[in-house]
């Protein structure tokens, strides 16, 4: 059937585009130097990744606990209902981010040197 064939072409096209974007973002990745935290689009703070620290973002009601350890940033605790930011795990490469939509918190990893491929293919 002609339509089935077109469906399959559409499917293949989407998957290829997804693979290309993924490949491109992976290739251009480099290890980050610091984490930039923004809340509701405004910069909340900048924290170097080489210093282990724990930051509480937000107030008593809406908060995210950001932990920086061994050059990686991770949200370990959050007040949001879905906890997606916690599940996103660690971020260490330039351009990686941890996003909490309910609290409008974005943790972005920035700067740093170009990573070697072993580090990318972890």
């Amino acid at each position: 059937m002609k339509k089935r064939k077109n469906d399959f072409i559409l499917l293949a096209a989407v998957v290829i585009v997804a693979a290309l974007i993924w490949g491109f973002t992976r290739m251009t990745q480099s290890e980050g130097a610091y984490a930039v935290v923004t809340v509701d689009g405004e910069v909340y703070g900048t924290y170097p990744l080489d210093t282990d620290t724990e930051i509480r973002i937000g107030d008593d009601e809406h908060y995210n606990i950001l932990v920086i350890k061994d050059g990686k940033a991770e949200i370990t605790e959050a007040s949001c209902p879905d906890k997606l930011c916690v599940k996103q795990g660690e971020a260490e490469y330039d351009g990686q981010s941890i996003i909490c939509l309910p609290n409008k918190v974005v943790v972005e990893i920035k700067g740093g040197k170009q990573s070697d491929y072993d580090a990318v293919a972890k």
Partner: peptide, 14 residues
């Protein structure tokens, strides 16, 4: 959110 970084989710979401 005023961030382009969220586009990193695009492959997974596609």
């Amino acid at each position: 959110l005023g961030t382009k970084q969220i586009a990193y989710y695009l492959p997974v979401l596609l």
